[in-house]
Structure formats: structure tokens, C-alpha cells
Amino acid sequence: MTPIPRGVARRRRAALSVAALILSAALAACAGSGPPYTLKNITGLVQPLDFHLTNQDNQVVTAGDYRHDLVLLYFGYTECPDECPTTLTTLANALRTLGPEASQVRVLFVSVDPQRDTTAVLKHYVNHFGPEFVGLRPDEAELTDLSKRYRIAYHYEKPDPYGNYEVDHSNAVFIFDRDGRARLLALSDNTALQVASDLRRLLTSG
């Protein structure tokens, strides 16, 4: 057998290592993906979690306080007749399905109606849904900033003779992983089981 010239050997080794690199990159990509999530995937599309708001106990909290938790961010208001209670109930049921793992999840309920939703009102409201629920009250400027950041809209309807009014708002739940990156969007037609199984996947994938 004739010995392989050194130049050719070197080139072969280089080609092999490039092939190995490509293969391992492909494997890594596969390991990261797996079957698609049931909820809408928004990884890389929506800005990371960032806010500075007052919570139901009148303390100022920021996104940093919720690092290491999965965060579900939802915009609504306590006098919301149907949509908000339905969504929050779905989320509460999803957390109950998760069991003890629910302690690593926080649902942040941001009021789009800070005029009527005082911190006391918010506290009373979110307590209905469970210990993982946090009520957050923005001032007007903070609410505008959040609506720009997450590209959501809200609109106040004309008040009736008693001064009651409805607020049109987004109905999506933005889900952030433990590093604060936006990952999924839960919509009104998603069930508690679907939310729970995707949350569990996010919890195990780190």
C-alpha cells in the first residue's frame, strides 16, 4: 500500500473535522427543537421581559425580580366582564395541572385600567386565582411603554350614565422563559391542558 502524501492527509483531516463540526451543529439543532409547541411560538420575535411597575402590595417590582421563574404576562382589568376571568381561570387550571412545579411559574396581571384598578382592588382580584398570580398597576407612561414594547393595543369605551366603561384590549398571554426571553403566546382558544404541557416543557428545557 502506497503511503498517502502528507499534503493530502492534512487536507483529508481538515475535511473530516469540518464534516464533524457540521454534523454536531446539526445534532445540536435537532436536540434543541423537538416536536413543535402547541402554543404559538414567538421565540426571537418579541422583546425580552422588561418592566418597572407597582405590585398589589404597593412595592415597586422589575423584571429582574422574576428571573428564574417562568413568567406569564397578561394585560386586562378587574371589571372585565368575560375575557379576563376566562383567561385567568384557564391559566389557574393549567397551574393546578402542573402541581408542585407551579411554584416556578408567575402570572403577571397588568392592569390596562389603572384608574379603577387600585393596588387594593388588584390584590383582592388576583387572590381569587391563586398564589402564583401577581397584580401589577402601571401609571399612564408605564402602560404606554409596555404597549409599545409588546405591540398591544387597549381602548377605553364611552362610559355609560353610571360611569361604567369597558376596555378593549389584547387577549394574548406572553410566556417568558426563566432567562426572560419571550417564547410562547397562549391564545383564547388554548386549553388549560395545552398550556400546562407547554409550560412543563419550558420548565424542563431550562
Partner: peptide, 12 residues
Amino acid sequence: YDIYAICGRAWA
């Protein structure tokens, strides 16, 4: 286009 229902419309 479901995005407008998801993120909210400017008015109802």
C-alpha cells in the same frame, strides 16, 4: 389575520 385580535385593535 388573527394578529389584530391577539394584540388588540385600536378601537372596537
